[in-house]
Design a binder for these strands. Structure first.
Lengths: 259, 259
DNA sequence: TTAACTCTGTGCGGTACCGCACAGAGAGGT
DNA sequence: ACCTCTCTGTGCGGTACCGCACAGAGTTAA
């Protein structure tokens, strides 16, 4: 069966910074300061945005791409820590003060995104206005996701984790189709490829997904949520609570300080 | 709780806010604004500082106590996400903007600490001065710890994790002695009590620890570090990088190591 | 002293996942 | 057409951990 190779990535000309929900949530004033310095870039599968210990030169705002934060151990084994799409940005360590992190950021689903030089980002952050508060809220959402990853790694089966992972990816795409081999998923989850094969097989038998050679289509999202562990729902609920503007279009303005 | 051996907790009168290294790192001006509103409180084993979803009324700065952040699943199983001692504070969600978290904070090693009403903390934070930058750096250290917990849960054996856990606790105490049953450690690590027993047994045979009924003494810290996975060292190095002021420990820290 | 309780040690069957090996089914190139 | 490479399916032995059950050692209470 021929899968038409062109996924959901739009052409370059149809992109806007506001397709990233964090950027969209900013007020026109802040947008006017930042957007002129934004660069639209293509983000191909496997591209490493930064390596463990690298000083961050840019922060990245995905639009239709997905980026995984993962830790690579001394022996080469890896584990995904969190996943970022149009709901977030890559490079929180920049304004946290560390300038680098112990994890690697790698594109997990090809697409596009915007990047901004670190110094521009810091300058705006240091105005201590709405960007600061938006970034802090996003950081907490990220923290929640990491914490839940730790829990999930401890207590849940490969099948449950696969469900969670598919849902997290699905939420960051514009259709129900992923370009992703089971080998890559195994690397993200930090398990054997065969384990993913077996779990995917069971999901297929349950009528939840179709797949073939690097293409996965979710056919029954509702059932997928039922088969997933609670971790997905916890992260989703907390993210929606912290970043309500990411839910849909409206860019409601937030107060500049917490009360 | 009537163990005749009084642990390392000092008397109330000998405590100072500066015994918490974050508070100690603040300038005299900020200290003068904050310290008058600090309350010294006792933190007994098992005390829950806040529950998942609770709105934070205080932030807590441990001096000689240790607090675990842990997630409790729907079925009651739990997993530790991070651990906080005199090097940190409990309640980062306050200034991140969320006001609450999905995790629980519970005292893991009895002692003392200071607490500050949330509003005081926010007021100082909203000056956008040094407290802000200190808190952001600490948050990144916490993020690193959470990420590494996720990795550790994925890839390492109970014995390695126990080593990591003992080292993290040890670093936050003033001697080499812990009051902690194996059952409690199992709850923190999210594993069976018998698994901890077996691992502890092996460590004892290697001459690394002594223990009996809720008392654990580390006799060979060097070997403990060797038996631990890389996770401990990664977290330690990153914490020291981000918060160099926390490096120097109280002088009383000495162990009877034999290596 | 005795009794009750807590903490640790051990054994056993079951299971989930690992590492490895290899077969077979697409998909692309020439 | 054929070859090659990538991706998925499957089987097998090994192991780490689980759930359970229970014994024994230490500590507290009467």
């Amino acid at each position: 069966m021929i899968h038409s190779a062109q996924p959901q990535t739009k052409t370059a000309s149809s992109h806007q910074p506001t397709h990233n929900h964090l950027l969209n949530a900013l007020s026109p004033e802040v947008q006017q300061r930042l957007f002129p310095h934004m660069e639209l870039i293509e983000m191909p599968l496997g591209k490493v945005l930064y390596e463990s210990g690298d000083v961050l030169r840019y922060v990245y705002f995905p639009t239709d791409s997905i980026v995984s934060l993962l830790y690579v151990m001394e022996n080469g084994a890896s584990a995904e820590i969190a996943v970022v799409g149009y709901d977030g940005l890559i490079g929180v360590a920049l304004f946290m003060g560390g300038e680098s992190t112990t994890s690697r950021a790698v594109v997990q689903s090809a697409g596009w995104g915007y990047r901004l030089r670190s110094q521009r980002m810091k300058d705006e952050f240091n105005r201590h206005g709405e960007l600061l508060h938006l970034m802090l809220r996003y950081s907490q959402a990220l923290i929640t996701q990491m914490a839940q990853t730790a829990v999930c790694n401890r207590h849940h089966s490969i099948e449950q984790q696969l469900c969670r992972w598919l849902l997290l990816s699905l939420d960051r795409l514009h259709d129900n189709h992923l370009l992703m081999t089971q080998e890559l998923i195994a690397n993200m989850l930090g398990v054997r490829r065969e384990g993913v094969t077996e779990a995917a097989c069971r999901l297929h038998k349950h009528g939840v997904i179709d797949y073939s050679r690097g293409h996965i289509t979710v056919t029954d999202r509702h059932k997928l949520e039922q088969l997933s562990c609670e971790c997905y729902a916890v992260v989703k609920a907390e993210t929606d609570r912290l970043l309500p503007y990411s839910k849909d279009k409206p860019a409601s303005k937030k107060t500049a300080t917490c009360h």
